[in-house]
Design a protein around this nucleic acid. Structure first.
Length: 204
DNA sequence: ACCGGGATGTTCT
DNA sequence: GAACATCCCGGTG
């Protein structure tokens, strides 16, 4: 069990994205294994918040690698990214979905419904933030030092040898870039209706 | 199962 | 005014 160091993040976001699969994000009593991520590539990427330069909202993206960029969207949702690359580069990886491991009762309570299946707790970027209690207060925190209690660790489970890959979800600008990766076959990935229906009986 | 639309507010044109 | 890195509910088949 090892906290990811700054060098892990200080690389190309597409590389970091694939390497983040199967890592574990920790916050308080909660833990979840990342199963879906997207790379956002700054000045060359029309889909990135950083494409048009630094603003108060996206300032964290231009900070040091290992920062946590949390932003508000659609009037009610939070989404979290791990900042990558070099300072002022504006590149990051969106944490899109995770498999809940610990603290499922807390997650279910924050997600608002008692009868949610495990796979509904963190299967989307805003669900993940809600389940893990990430909001504006965590924007600009440091995943390396864990200054506000959030870290990402390697528990020995390696990234998939061949991850699933697709275009990113929910974008207009930059929609052509295939910069989404996921753990193929995981029931905890978002947007299951976009994938071939698995008719297998669910275990959770 | 699939689809359509509403919620809700910040940011940018 | 429109767009937005989303989610949930209720309709229909």
């Amino acid at each position: 069990m090892k906290v990811l160091e700054r060098d892990f993040y200080a690389r190309d976001p597409k590389t970091v994205a694939k390497q983040l699969l199967n890592k574990v994000i920790l916050h308080g009593e909660c833990a979840a294994r990342l199963v879906e991520v997207e790379a956002y590539c700054g000045a060359i990427d029309p889909g990135s918040h950083a494409f048009r330069g630094k603003t108060p909202r996206n300032a964290t993206m231009f900070g040091p690698a290992g920062g946590l960029y949390v932003y508000f969207t659609y009037g009610m949702h939070w989404c979290a990214n791990a900042v990558c690359g070099d300072v002022d580069e504006g590149v990051a990886v969106l944490l899109r979905a995770a498999e809940p491991l610990l603290g499922l009762d807390s997650m279910r309570e924050r997600r608002g419904r008692a009868a949610l299946r495990d796979r509904d707790l963190c299967s989307g970027p805003a669900k993940l933030c809600q389940a893990l209690a990430l909001d504006r207060a965590f924007d600009g925190s440091d995943l390396v030092t864990g200054d506000r209690g959030v870290v990402i660790v390697d528990d020995g489970v390696r990234p998939p040898r061949r991850p699933g890959n697709s275009v990113r979800i929910g974008l207009r600008a930059g929609a052509e870039h295939p910069w989404r990766w996921f753990v193929d076959g995981s029931e905890h990935v978002s947007n299951l209706k976009l994938r071939p229906a698995s008719r297998r009986p669910a275990s959770s």
